[in-house]
Simulated assay, not measured.
Amino acid sequence: MVEDIDPHIIGITESWATPDISDAELGMTGYVMFRKDRLGRRGGRVILYIKESIQAYEIKFKKEAECEEAVWCNIVTGKSTLTVGLVYRSPNISMEENEKIHNAIKEVSKRDCIIMGDFNHGHIQWTSLQSTGREDQEFLNLVQDSFLSQHVLEATRGENVLDIVLSSQKEFVDNVKICEPLGCSDHNQIHFIIKVKGERNRKIRYRNKFHKGRYKDMREYLAKIDWNNTLKNKTATECWNILKSEIDCVVDKFVPLKKQGKRSKKKHLSKEAIIKIKYKQMMWKTYRHTGSEEVYKEALNQATAEIRNSKRSYEQKIAFNIKHDSKSFYAYVRSKQKVQDKVGPLEGSDGNIITEGFLMAENLNEYFSSVFTREDISILPVLETKFEGERV
């Protein structure tokens, strides 16, 4: 469960993507999911979650660079794009699949990119740029020949650096932190900041505070309108438009606005659970410096148990109060639904990527209207008379 982080991009590889774990259980609401499932074998896939507020779309490569367990996306960053890739390279990978990964990295490195994942090259010393073994040396040569920077220098599983972050420009990645494993995974988390200017479609939203509306002033304003003359000789549609316009006007004048804040996604976590999570993180840092694992494991078990108890108590509470507060119950149920794909960005007929809402709507309208059949109505057939006689 991703309980205590709220990143903009999340990459999940290997055992965390087994079929036993559903998308809803991972708790990735508010994200767009890009995934690549392992074919022909049980379990395993790579999943890349990108926040809905970020314009992103998946890209494909030619057959010689189409990896079995890798997903690639373009993120719109102002007037340019940043390619983000998530790769899982199995330790038992075939030569053909290994070559595809190398081809994909060569292709992506020609543009602004960030590549992350579990590559299982544990014998590379990234501080000195030395390695042992043919495959490790080939990968190190690939990274250097592609002018990529590798940012993870601490061990991510045991004493090995298996999970890495590559970037085409060193300044793209900052503040890399190795954090405690997520759940029962044996790999440490990697947190880092991507320093690019993103094009985000998040807008500040406001809502009316009707409970603080000045309804006395509203009635006086509406009473001054001569409705008989205003609506005289008007059609039903025209009357409705006038009435709607006046209602909108009085709402804007006499009902104050309130900026919509960001809703908490941790309602099911009690204060005790949040304290336990923070304590677990502190003990992880202590374990990394001292090597004392017992204290961290105890804190981890306590945090896990408290999260489960807090979630169970919250679910029982909203289920018990469903008759009085059905809104909270159904909001929680909706939050557990699977991630829904959003529309766009789209590729236009000229091959350019369209990200603006109006242009995407126009593009979809043009595409679907192209299949409409245009009938020739200049020459219409004459209907054959079936009945002859006088009308009654």
Rank of each mutant, 00 (worst) to 15 (best):
R391H: 09
S185D: 02
D226N: 15
K271W: 07
L346R: 01
Q302Y: 05
K234M: 12
E347P: 00
D217A: 14
D6T: 06
T132S: 13
Q55S: 14
F320H: 12
K259F: 03
S167W: 03
S168F: 04
L364Q: 08
F139R: 06
K297R: 14
K280E: 02
L222H: 05
D112K: 09
E66C: 06
V255M: 09
D252A: 10
W16L: 15
S15L: 13
Q281K: 10
I322E: 09
Q281M: 08
K265V: 03
I353C: 05
S128I: 07
K62R: 11
I75R: 08
Q281G: 07
F387N: 06
T132E: 11
K278A: 09
N301A: 10
Q340E: 10
Q137K: 08
R200D: 01
K232H: 13
I21D: 07
M28K: 06
Y287N: 05
Y221V: 03
T77I: 14
K203Q: 11
V161A: 07
M33A: 14
W126H: 01
K317F: 08
I377E: 14
S90E: 07
E246H: 14
E388H: 08
L166G: 01
C73F: 01
V333Y: 04
E384M: 03
E356F: 02
S349I: 08
N208F: 15
R35Y: 01
G78N: 04
F254G: 01
L86T: 00
D163I: 02
D145S: 14
D226H: 03
V173E: 03
N103R: 05
S292K: 12
Q125H: 15
K253H: 05
D145Y: 04
K234C: 11
P256N: 03
Y206I: 04
K79I: 04
R288S: 13
D376Y: 00
I59T: 11
A331H: 07
E384W: 00
H8A: 12
V295P: 00
V46K: 03
E68W: 00
M282D: 11
E97R: 02
F119P: 00
N98Q: 13
I93H: 05
Y49H: 08
F119T: 02
I225R: 02
E159A: 13
E159G: 09
K342L: 12
T132C: 06
T385K: 08
D145F: 08
S185G: 05
E366M: 13
S264R: 11
